[in-house]
């Protein structure tokens, strides 16, 4: 179990690190897709089947498309190969990240975590009952957020004066 999880963790982590390091934006976005697929496989291995498929559907099918579209709409030819960040900025960022990493790492590995039997997977029906029962208000709110985000995204991205081009 742990070995499988470790392999999947690498499958997820290596593309993610590569995505942050490569210069080409399209490569970066595609590597992110790979990392998300790895994460979905990890969820699957952990036993969260529904979450894994929902994650793959939303990230690989939705978010990645939007990202690629944004990359193409913002002139990939000129800006996809960005200049390397300035040394000062890179150094500052790396120092901050290594501080966070050491904090997280030490807190994870020096904490004695309870070792209990894995919880059995939740049946899909139970998840649905939870969503439609105690979490109904939250579900509706999320639907509202998505609708508002959709309209807001449209308003932001649409040209100021939409050209009224009728098609004959």
């Amino acid at each position: 179990m742990t070995l499988l999880l470790a392999i999947l963790a690498l499958v997820c982590l290596v593309p993610a690190v590569a995505a942050v390091l490569v210069r080409n934006l399209i490569h970066s976005a595609l590597l992110f897709v790979l990392a998300w697929l790895g994460l979905a496989a990890f969820y699957l291995a952990v036993g969260a089947e529904f979450i894994a498929f929902a994650h793959a559907l939303v990230y690989v099918g939705g978010v990645s498309m939007v990202v690629l579209f944004a990359v193409l709409l913002t002139r990939p030819g000129r800006e996809s190969a960005l200049p390397a960040p300035s040394a000062q900025r890179a150094l500052g960022g790396l120092v901050a990240v290594s501080l966070v990493a050491s904090m997280l790492g030490s807190s994870i590995f020096w904490t004695r975590l309870p070792s209990v039997e894995p919880t059995p997977p939740v049946p899909l029906r139970r998840l649905g009952e939870l969503l439609a029962g105690p979490y109904l208000v939250a579900l509706l709110l999320v639907g509202l957020i998505l609708t508002v985000a959709l309209i807001g995204g449209l308003l932001l991205a649409a040209p100021r004066r939409p050209s009224e081009g009728g098609d004959a």
Partner: peptide, 14 residues
């Protein structure tokens, strides 16, 4: 996941 999707849509529009 749902909120992240909304964030991506608005973010890319921005």
């Amino acid at each position: 996941i749902a909120v992240a999707a909304a964030e991506a849509a608005v973010g890319m529009a921005l």
